[in-house]
């Protein structure tokens, strides 16, 4: 037990840092830069039942202190992930991974979770009901309590592993969605997915993103994410993985004070492949600076 250790749904993490799904692939690009076993864990690239190419290019737009992505859940499909990605991932990650799962119906989510359930390397499921890039106009399952309950219930029925539900900030009342996930049997909540945004190319006078809109992330969204984590942390009796714009050890401490048990790091990995390593290395000194002994003691302390 180090001073950075936290417990996430019954599995101990060496530290609370979890690279967020979609910014870390299956880990091996980053393993070329550093030993990724220093991470708490990571959430692998969102996986669906069928292979998906995703959205047309351009998929990326820069913003002030952030970026928009419109990847659209590109992935090779769950069977290819199991056959080729996970064996390669296991060569570089020697601890449980978080399996991020997307889908288009409760049955599809259940199918994918069921297929991954037998993989020993999967420690947790993160159920993505909040991708803004796969339906017209950015609509998400996670904007409706009933649809949220149906997906979570279907997944709950096919796995005994911890089910963490990833929520969208693009809703009227995020606490209400979190409560629906809890009632349907979720073991944890992660948030926030990206904010729906857009940019316009002034030379072409047209949207930068081919799909017009995309998911906005990066340091600019941190205050919104922090607020959502605070609200959800008080609404449910479940551990929360807080994410959205986290870029420093100080941001991690803020997220945990707001109610996060573990902290996701997303866009920062794309700007700097060493972002998570640098945050983990900076954490002990940051804890000292703010008079914190063990990081788990500050969860929800604000």
């Amino acid at each position: 037990m180090g001073r950075l250790t936290v417990d996430l749904c019954g599995i101990e993490l060496d530290n609370p840092i979890i690279p967020a799904s979609g910014t870390f692939g299956f880990g091996y690009e980053f393993a070329e830069y550093y030993d990724i076993n220093i991470l708490g864990t990571f959430s692998f690239k969102g996986t669906t039942k069928e292979p998906r190419f995703g959205n047309p290019l351009p998929r990326i737009a820069e913003c002030t202190a952030g970026m928009i992505n419109s990847v659209g859940l590109q992935n090779p499909g769950v069977h290819e992930v199991i056959a080729h990605e996970l064996p390669r991932m296991r060569e570089v990650l020697h601890k449980p991974v978080m399996a991020n799962v997307g889908g288009f119906s409760p049955e599809e989510y259940a199918y994918t979770v069921s297929a991954l359930d037998g993989e020993d390397s999967v420690g947790w499921f993160e159920i993505n009901i909040s991708c803004p890039n796969v339906h017209a106009g950015g609509a998400v399952t996670g904007s409706d309590c009933r649809a949220t309950g149906e997906v979570v219930g279907a997944v709950r029925a096919v796995t005994k592993k911890p089910v963490i539900v990833k929520l969208s900030p693009n809703v009227t009342d995020i606490a209400e969605i979190a409560r629906a996930a809890e009632a349907a049997g979720a073991d944890g909540i992660s948030l926030i997915n990206t904010l729906l945004g857009m940019r316009i190319d002034l030379r072409r006078k047209k949207p930068v993103i081919a799909n017009v809109m995309g998911g906005f992330s990066g340091p600019a969204v941190f205050p919104v994410a922090l607020r959502c984590v605070y609200q959800v942390g008080r609404a449910v009796d479940l551990p929360v993985v807080g994410m959205g714009g986290v870029s420093s050890a100080e941001d991690v401490i803020e997220m945990m004070l707001a109610g996060a048990t573990a902290v996701g790091v997303g866009a920062a990995n794309l700007r700097d492949p060493y972002a998570c390593r640098d945050i983990i290395e900076a954490l002990p000194a940051a804890l000292d600076k703010y008079g914190i002994n063990e990081i788990k003691d500050i969860i929800g302390g604000a």
Binding site: T23, E29, G54, L57, R59, I60, V71
Partner: peptide
């Protein structure tokens, strides 16, 4: 560097 799939 191949992580985000933004340019597939």
């Amino acid at each position: 560097f191949g992580a985000c799939l933004g340019c597939s």
